[in-house]
Amino acid sequence: MKSIISYITEILKGIWTLLTGMKVTAKYFFTPWKHVTQQYPENRKTLKIAERFRGEVIMPHNENNEHKCTGCGICEINCPNGSIEIITKSLILEDGKKKRAIDQHIYHLGMCTFCNLCVKACPTGAIVMGQNFEHAVWDRSTLTKVLNQPGSKIMEGVKD
């Protein structure tokens, strides 16, 4: 007799623990306005990305198509994956002296691990991290980017 009673109480206790859990889920079921999910592709306009978010490396240009990159190559040395290639050219100044300048700042997005070391090391603040995170492309050759825009030149007064 005793064993039957303990058997039944065990079952009832078990059902009670299940109901306790069900109570939690029921609470959320009947309060759906507390949802935490986001309707992602639809909410692109209202989506807030943190300003420090590391999505890609970009080189900001001003309205005169000028940037701050001197072509020193420190970002290339600091990159752990070889995502950055610097191709320089030499400019001949008015007084006849030669000066190094950036020809192409090549950035391989597909190899980048977004560690921020290049941005941290840049002495002139020429490259920063952009917030764009939608990098899916059809052809991976498009992941190789040239960061300095065509025809751009270095800003006045930026020295390395």
């Binding site: 935490v36 943190a50 420090r52 978010f53 590391r54 691990t113 977004f114 560690c115 921020n116 991290m129």
Partner: peptide
């Protein structure tokens, strides 16, 4: 759901959610 809050804090301060460096 609750982990998301921590990841948002990481994103704001560290700039990344998982591989923070």
């Amino acid at each position: 759901r609750d982990r998301e809050d921590i990841l948002d804090i990481f994103e704001e301060t560290c700039g990344a959610r998982l591989t923070v460096n």
